[in-house]
Design a protein around this nucleic acid. Structure first.
Lengths: 209, 209
DNA sequence: TATAATTACTGATTTATATCAACACGATGG
DNA sequence: CCATCGTGTTGATATAAATCAGTAATTATA
């Protein structure tokens, strides 16, 4: 295996011997952009650990509307719930860029977790992070309206906002590109953002959410 | 203390000695209906374990709209994320009925978790349950429209649907009572539910979500 | 450089759902 | 027994955002 587990956050402070054991039932995979990692409804067998790239997790509703639940980045665990609960994956995971993942045999990992407090602690931390993220999605999507969501997004992504395509931002925020365009126009008209000068008035933005 | 921790799901399979230790920094509280357990923004110090009753967790948006994130029932843990992450509570918890809670000093509990695999495992299970619930909220609220949400609710609550007030169901589903009334009328008109006969055509309902 | 493809903008229309308003019905309490 | 309160129903209207449609601007490609 090319990737060494000990360099991965999830396995920090876990002893060499345990790591070696885990490496025995872990495989490394490359998934190229736009390919599916797993489908909604698939039976889980592996825990996925995203090493590199971005994975998009989404659901398709009955009327074929795609709702993005989350974009996963480096070092994030994917599919714990399905694995822990022995239920089919509730959403589809697709490579949003070229991606490197580790597939860990979950049944075997479970035993190791149980006998290794450090690993258990790391998994716990990862679960808590995920809860935090989900709670954030809920409060962002259910509590804020579109303009507030956009304001919050720009505020939190001031560094790369001008380098991100609007259609991507629209997808992330779950609004239509047209709506986003109109909201951005509003912020431009109010001198809160300036695309040419790459200027963002964060103090003004914060008023909007 | 009146309540014995060993009778609580979270402490199942945890040895007597550990339980006794935990009892030393756990206190028991009664909160009567409509009173606040903690406010959004409060600094967390205790982990709450709901022993009896229902606690409503909600956020109030900038335009004073209340969004219910979750109703907690018996044996559920409240506030793990805030405690684990050392961040202020992201939402307000209010007693929805008369309620009994345990307040557990989190800093002290943390040490115990670390040295007790069974407890760690139980906490992990509780975290996974919470993730599952949050994912469910997201898919219900973001992917389904109102009619689909109502159909899903009736399908999943066939046993107590006719005993629950519509205004409560509306709040749980995050739709207005008027909208719920109109949707129920639709299902009645299509002979999918019948209030007098307390009849629910679950097979027909499932088509709607 | 010219052409095609993608992305962004803008106006008009549609849609789902909330809100407002009026009213009906049953339960509760003086 | 009537008045009041909580709940449910129904219609009319308002609102946020999606969709549709056309065009402009930008980026990629031949």
């Amino acid at each position: 295996m090319r990737i060494h587990l000990k360099n991965i956050v999830l396995f920090q402070n876990v002893d060499e011997e345990t790591i070696k054991k885990i490496e025995h039932f872990t495989t490394e995979h490359k998934v190229s952009k736009e390919n599916i990692v797993f489908y909604e409804g698939d039976e889980p067998k592996y825990l996925y650990l995203l090493v590199k790239g971005v994975i998009k997790l989404y659901k398709t509703s009955s009327n074929h509307k795609e709702v993005v639940l989350k974009y996963f980045h480096d070092n994030e665990l994917i599919g714990e719930v399905a694995n822990f609960e022995g239920m089919p994956y509730p959403a589809t995971a697709k490579a949003y860029s070229d991606v490197e993942v580790l597939k860990i045999d979950f049944e075997k990992l479970k035993d190791v977790i149980f006998s290794n407090p450090n690993l258990a602690f790391n998994i716990q931390t990862s679960l808590v992070k995920k809860i935090k993220n989900l709670e954030n999605i809920i409060s962002t999507n259910l509590v804020l309206d579109s303009k507030e969501r956009v304001a919050k997004y720009i505020y939190n992504h001031a560094d790369d906002f001008f380098e991100t395509k609007n259609i991507e931002i629209a997808e992330i925020l779950g609004v239509s590109p047209e709506t986003l365009s109109r909201i951005l126009k509003f912020f431009k008209d109010h001198d809160i953002i300036n695309v040419k000068k790459k200027y963002i008035d964060r103090d003004a933005l914060i008023q909007y959410f």
